[in-house]
């Protein structure tokens, strides 16, 4: 058998991706269309996520990010370290950023939560998202939703941050591709442009 080289792998997977892209009707099952059944045990909590009310039965030890991803299908919020260190799970709770991996779902009962899914309105991206694209913020993209939410929390409270303030606001989000400066540029480029929707 011919060994797989990096080049041949990329060529083949590139063909595969092109083929998939050529089938517009290809349906990707989403969590939204097939939500997991609520657990029998546990207690019901009321979460208002991106303006929409959800009543979910949760167990006490479930984290907020587990419920968002696995039970509400909002997989834009990522789990990196699961220890409150990397920032990929950043969401806003009553307007303030926090690590959703380090917060229990039961503690969020009755609170308003904003996730990355709430930033765009239909096809209209949030100015922050536009700037992230413009400034080539994401490389692998894994940390991007967390970076967006930290930036959102900053601009909601401080629409015209200094560079130092923006650096501090993004300090809790690690980018393993090391694109920190691009994210910073994007946030500064957005500031003062009235990005603060949602």
């Amino acid at each position: 058998m011919k060994p797989i080289s990096r080049r041949s792998f990329l060529e083949r997977s590139g063909t595969g991706m092109a083929a998939a892209a050529a089938i517009p009707a290809l349906e990707v099952p989403t969590f939204q269309s097939q939500p997991q059944p609520a657990e029998e045990r546990g207690r019901e909590v009321h979460l208002k996520v991106n303006g929409k009310d959800h009543r979910v039965k949760v167990e006490d030890h479930w984290t907020l990010v587990e419920v968002l991803r696995d039970h509400l299908g909002l997989t834009g919020t990522r789990v990196g370290c699961d220890r409150g260190e990397c920032g990929a799970c950043t969401v806003l709770l009553d307007g303030k950023s926090l690590y959703a991996c380090s917060y229990l779902a039961v503690w969020a009962d009755g609170k308003e939560i904003s996730t990355v899914e709430g930033l765009a309105e239909g096809d209209q991206l949030d100015p922050l998202q536009e700037a992230f694209i413009e400034h080539d913020g994401p490389q692998c993209g894994f940390c991007t939703s967390g970076q967006l939410m930290s930036a959102k929390a900053l601009l909601n409270q401080n629409p015209n941050p200094t560079e130092e303030e923006a650096r501090q606001a993004l300090a809790g989000n690690i980018c393993r591709c090391s694109n920190f400066n691009r994210y910073l540029e994007a946030v500064l480029a957005t500031s003062g442009k009235g990005s603060s929707r949602g």
Binding site: T63, D82, R83, G84, S102, Y103, L104, W107
Partner: peptide, 26 residues
């Protein structure tokens, strides 16, 4: 006891503590 709870949850995940009850002080 859980004030913010960030550190406590990390310690539970790492099996450093194993409380039967978490007292949420929020």
């Amino acid at each position: 006891l859980a004030g913010g709870g960030s550190d406590l949850l990390g310690m539970i995940k790492d099996d450093l503590v194993a409380p039967d009850v978490v007292v949420n002080l929020k």
